[in-house]
Design a protein around this nucleic acid. Sequence first.
RNA 1: GGCCCCUUCGUCUAGUGGUCUAGGACUCCGGCCUUUCACGCCGGCAACACGGGUUCGAGUCCCGUAGGGGUCACCA
Length: 525
Amino acid sequence: MTVRTRFAPSPTGYLHIGGVRTALFNWLLARQSGGQFILRIDDTDTERNIDSALQPILDGFKWLGIDWDEGPEVGGIHQPYFQSQRLSCYQAATQRLLESGKAYRDYATPQEVAQEREAAEREKRDFVYSRRWMAETEETCQKFEAEGRSFVVRLKMPREGTCNIEDLVRGEVSFDWDREQDHVIQRADGTCLYHLANVVDDHDFEITHVIRAVEHLSNTPRQIFIAESLGYQLPSYAHIPFVAEPGSKNKLSKRKIEQYMKNHDFKKLFDHGVAIANRIDLEVVPSSFNPVLVDFYRDIGFLPDAIVNYLLLVGWSLDDKTEDFSRQQMTDLFSLDRVVKSEASFDPEKLLVFQQRYMNELPLKQKVVRCLPFLQRAGLVGPSIECEMGPYLSSIIDAADDRITVAGDILQFDDFFIPDEKLQYDSKAFQKRLVKPENAGYLLDLFKGELAQQDDFKADPLNALLHHFCESQGIKIGQIIHGLRVAVTGKAAGFGMFETLEILGRERCIHRIERALEHLHGAAE
RNA sequence: GGCCCCUUCGUCUAGUGGUCUAGGACUCCGGCCUUUCACGCCGGCAACACGGGUUCGAGUCCCGUAGGGGUCACCA
């Protein structure tokens, strides 16, 4: 039997990071055994524009490298994969349920059911529908219809015994049938509800393993009832813990971003993103620019592999030390029995660590490819990059080394792309390193003269040059190097000073120092 | 509230009765390196929710308590 798993997103316009984790586990299980991973669209309740709400989700999966064998865009032998187009399947199933007496027409109005529910609450007993408006014969149907009533279809749930679920993650879990309600499976207008659709589709698509978040565990008995009533063979169930908020055990929610901002690490991640977004004219709105959603990561230059590797480890582990997994390794080694039972909080800091690791391992060429679009979007580099820009960009990214965590971080080194005349000085740094030290200007001016005579403008010789200079002046290198950095980059911090000088080249270094000196004298007057 | 699930360092986790005076990773705190920032290196702090059993022996099994979460829709 080949393993067939599925993920069933609703077209909401965004891809939730917790959803990705669930999809990932499904995908992994299918891939490791040469099975199929299916994407099915749960759009039974939405009347919005499906295309525009679905595309971001499909794009998200594609970006992450989670591909599907059947579903939107790729089709498949079981199509359609949109629930909104499968109504007839559900109606046929409902009909069979009705015929076998596992479901019934119910002519109660919502108000009448609500009244029963309230009465039960008042009397402090569990609510069980009286089935007062249940119609199992043509006569009763006609009687109720004569009263002007319309019907919904309800499940006729067992009222005794237990439902045992053999869960691949949790072991055996049992529920008493008498706690279950006669759930509605079809509305008065003939449209169907989630649970029925879900069970019918899983069967039609020949899903062998239903891997989903724990919040569905309590819903499983009714689905089992439907499946068994229809004579379906039950899939295996695995209820995995959901991804929780940072620092709590609540389910991570897209809407609670305001609250998450109180979490230091979450805010740090968000602010990191905002700094990049502001430079590339990206709208910072919670509906897409939100660390709970995948778009956020793509937009600021995360690596899909880093995210997938991180997500793999929230709720699953191989052993007590292995953390890095290639796609191949994770598909080979993943197993449901090593899924943890308790909910795991999303840890932005740890995600960043994976990102950093993957970014550092990326070949320089790849880094350049990832960073370039950010420079272009920030208007620092033209749309068609000139030939000489390639090596120039490479040298910067090479020198920046691990300081580039996400591709968008290249913008921290914007000073290499700004014309000398437009270089902005960090005012605090300028004050501290150039204005305040008495002889900073003097030393810088002197050293500028040395630079002007330096022919071999490479990091090592420049290093030697500055050291000799310091010796001859009887100063420590710290007395000049900071001011030099501020003068040529405008910033207090950056990568190696001598690499910086080399990359900038002699003319620009001198020009920038002159400009800084002018600025300094201007400030003094 | 009923039912169901969960509970090891701040976080992610290892641990399937003795090798656990509980291991790893991230964070944090020291120190080293150093021209800044970052990296790196070394070291350190830090957890079995609680109470009863069972057992020679319990983080590991059982029961209870507490806490957390989920679910009880003509939502998905």
